[in-house]
Amino acid sequence: MALTPQDVSRIAHLARLELQEAESAALLPQLNGFFSIVEQMSAVDTRGVEPLYTPLSTVQQVALRLREDRVTESNQRELNQRSAPAVEDGLFLVPKVIE
């Protein structure tokens, strides 16, 4: 299977990346080159194999560790917002959100 320029622009939109003509043109063969080495993967029979989402589950059952329900954070707004592009009245400002 080969990607089309349409695939590239669809994915770029999904990923919120503005691609210049030249970039898209360069990306297409690169992505297709990549997916050509991916092909060998599909040949392997993986029926009945459990996906390995977290490495240690190879040798042991890995269970999610839980937090106790306690408030441990205090107000750090000033510190947390010190690298924010646009803030007013403690709010992050963004171009109008239309629902």
């Binding site: 009245d89 709010l91 400002l93 963004v94 171009p95 109008k96 959100v97 629902e99």
Partner: peptide, 12 residues
């Protein structure tokens, strides 16, 4: 998203 206007922007 707070929709009252901040110079044409929204506040989050």
């Amino acid at each position: 998203s707070l929709h009252e206007d901040y110079h044409g922007q929204s506040g989050i």
